[in-house]
Every structure is written in C-alpha cells, then in structure tokens.
Design a protein around this nucleic acid. Structure first.
Lengths: 233, 233
DNA sequence: TCAAAAGTGTTTCGGGTACACCCATGT
DNA sequence: ACATGGGTGTACCCGAAACACTTTTGA
C-alpha cells in the first residue's frame, strides 16, 4: 500500500525449481546452473536458475522468461511455491525470492543431457544434488515436498510425460515421486475412474506386448473440478 | 540472485487477511481498514491492513508488526498465503504484495468491536464485505478458500477460540468455516480420536447443562505429525 | 415442567487395499 | 520356448456417514 514512498527497497527475484524425468524414466531430476567462478559469493556452486523480475511483467511471466533465457526450456506446468524473504538469505543484501515450481516433459530434459560433466547447465538427480548456493537446498526440499503432496490430489504427473503415454509410464511417475510402489490394478482402476485419460488409436511397441497409449484430457479435468469432484491419489 | 544491480526495483508490501469470530460466535469476520479520504487512489475504500516490509526483518515479522501497528492485534496463527505481483494491481506503480493469512482469538476481535459504524478499523462479516480497494477482494477470496481447505487437515480451528473451549464451540467453528452442518457424534468421536484435546477441570455454566472445557495440546499435535499421523476433517 | 444445550453407540455403506494369473510380443 | 512387460476381477476390512434418545441445568 505505497503512498509516494521513501522506504529503501529490496530486490525481488524469481527462483525456479524445475523437475523432470531422467531419460531412463527412473529418477526425478532438477535443473541446476553453475555459478561463474568469478561471481562472489558461492562462486562455482550450483544453484537454482533465477533472475530479477522485470517491472512490466507478472511474476509468472518472469518465471517463464527466466527459464527460457537461462536454459531454453518450456514448462508444461508452473505454480507459485513460496516467497522466501529472510534478511540473511543473500549475503549481499536484501533479496526477496518468489520461488516457483515447474515441470517439463522429457523432450525438454534432453536439451541439457548432452555433456553433463562439463556443461554449466544440467539436470541432477534430486536425491543426489550437490550442496547448493544460498538457501537453495531449502527451496529444493520445499518444492520436492510440495510436489509429493500435490501429485496425490492433482493429476500433474502427466506434465512430466510426453503427450502420449501408457498407464505404466504414468504409474512409474507416481512411484518415483512418491517414493513407494503402487499396486498396478488399483492404480489403473483409480485413474481410469476419473475419466480424464482418453485412449489413442496407437500402441507402443517396444519388444513386448504393445501398450495402449493415452493422452490427458484437460477440459474433462476442468469439468470435474467444477463439479466438485476431487482427484485423489 | 543479485549481482550488484541496476534493475529498477518494485515495492514489496505485506497484506494481511485476518479472520476472527463474531462475538455471537456465528459468523466469520475479517479485519478491514478504511483508507483516508485524501489518499488516492481508492480514497475512502475499505482495504486489508498492510504495509511495507522493513529491510532488516523477515516477512513474517513484517506481517506481525504491521498488524500490531495498524490494529493493535496479536495473532494466534499466521501463514503465508500467496504473493501477488500483477503489474497492474496498484495504479501507482509496481507493488508486489506478500499476502498472509492470520487468525485471532475472540479477545482480539473485541478490540475493534466498539463503535463499528464510525471507526476506520473494524471487523466485517466475511460474506458481507463492501467492495475493497486494489485487488483485495481477490486476496480475501483466496484466503477464505485456503482457510476452508486447511481447516480440514490441520486443527487450526482452535486458533479462533479462547484457550479453553467446549466441543460445541469447536464444532461451531468448523461449521462456520466450512459452511455446512456436521454430525455432533461423528465430530466428537473424530476429534477426540486424535487425542490432542485435554479436558480441563472446568465446566462452562450458561443456563443449561454444564459443558466440559478443553484446551488444545500443541505438543501432542506436533508428536502426531512427526509420527506421520494425519489430522483429517 | 419445560426449554435448551450436553452427551453418548450402533449399523450401514463405500472405497481402499491386498492379491495371482493370462496375454501379446520379440528374440 | 522363454523372457518381459501389459492387462484384468474379487474378497476383505476399515473408516465415514447416518441416525435418536437421555441428562443436566436454569427459568
């Protein structure tokens, strides 16, 4: 509620916790950026991608732009996570960070999968990240928890998969995120009961019995929500 | 992630959505402040209490201080709600608002219950608030929804009541917040099953059969959470 | 004695969970 | 023929929801 103000102002940044799936589809990965050797503090540390907000754009637009600029990525899902404003979180001064949680499809993950050892932008397995700059380890943990709870009442698992996917793919996503195995029959019954997956006229052929491919029907999902029906697990 | 920066900076404020209970214990109320007639824009409109963050204090501390300063209130519950950063939300310039959701006990509500018609700080029934300044109607709706969902999996209903309360008091709180009536026997069984209410050696006498008073045992509740047990409804 | 709120158990129903076998394909 | 993942149905159990009467007090 600013009257013409004389208050000193904090910097406002957006930090991004972007999750994807390993090419092997068996681990959750997160996008990190290596800070330049010359940039004090935390030089050489890995950190979450982020950047200053622009004056004329919304926070969400800042989030998407930042990611486009720093990693050339397009998100399939984006939600605001939390705002971190501890006065000590950045040693250089008061920086308030609005953190966002993002998800990408596998095509996007492959963008930085090339030279993992040397590149300064790369995907890291979530349970094997190095020590991060600033309070970013804390942000990452917060995002991971949020993903785990959210996935069980919103079908955001599909945003980690290609447009067309099999039920086993989807189950694997849930198992990876939740960190426990699920019963195949119960999972299928549950998911199909929501009536938000539509079968395609395609099957995946991979040396075994072909698997039915589905796509997520987001209109149907919106209908469901409006009707007050809850997606659960 | 600021390097020594040349970016223009946005203002950062904290806006507070503080809920309480009507003295009659039958409505949810929210604290509003009337903007001075001279303060463009939205002069004379009612608005949520709020203020600029101080450079050396945390966001949460800013929230509590703001409320203390503008209304002399002490909160029994406080949580970050969401950060609103639409470039157009304040016509005077870029203002990013970190919104907080707060709850107060009935003693605090009575502070501004005196001369409701004339005072410039007063409690309003949530489903009867006037048109608010800025995007505050939107903030209020967001907070109200959050309260409704949160109350069903965290026992924050107790933060709207005095230290000592009866089971009927607590049930009424839930009914007011959720907007529907609950079965008395099921409610009691459920609540007592969590083992977080301890009976006091006191009864409330109000012209009818005396009612057992309880207090909320927050240590026990923390234990529960650690054991992974979930409070539900 | 009446009005008003406090307090108390049992039955029913539905969803969650556990569980094992056959099918289609490629090698 | 065999290995690999795809696909399907049923029984049990527990927690949620529905439901009505007795008790205690003040007026």
């Amino acid at each position: 509620m600013s009257e013409a103000t004389v208050y000193p102002r904090a910097d406002v940044t957006v930090d991004m916790v972007v999750f994807g799936l390993d090419p092997d589809h068996d681990r959750l990965v997160v996008l990190l950026i290596k800070r330049a050797q010359a940039s004090q503090p935390f030089d050489g540390y890995w950190a979450l991608p982020g950047g200053f907000i622009a004056m004329e754009e919304s926070l969400e637009a800042s989030a998407r732009r930042t990611l486009e600029r720093e990693a050339g990525l397009t998100l399939s899902y984006l939600e605001q996570l939390y705002t971190f404003g501890d006065p000590q979180r950045d040693p250089r001064g008061r920086v308030i960070s609005v953190a966002y949680l993002g998800l990408v499809r596998p095509e996007e993950v492959s963008i930085h999968a090339d030279h993992p050892a040397t590149a300064d932008v790369r995907w890291w397995a979530v349970d094997d990240v190095p020590e991060l700059a600033f309070d970013h380890t804390h942000l990452l943990e917060t995002a991971h928890r949020r993903l785990q709870t959210k996935v069980s009442w919103q079908p955001i698992g599909v945003d980690l998969l290609p447009e067309a996917f099999t039920l086993s793919d989807l189950q694997r996503v849930y198992e990876i995120i939740l960190g426990r195995s699920l019963d195949k029959r119960n999972f299928r019954r549950k998911i199909m009961g929501f009536d938000v997956l539509v079968p395609l006229d395609q099957y995946r052929q991979d040396g075994h019995r072909p698997a039915q491919l589905f796509r997520f029907d987001s209109e149907r999902y919106t209908e469901l929500l409006d009707k007050g029906l809850a997606f659960e697990l």
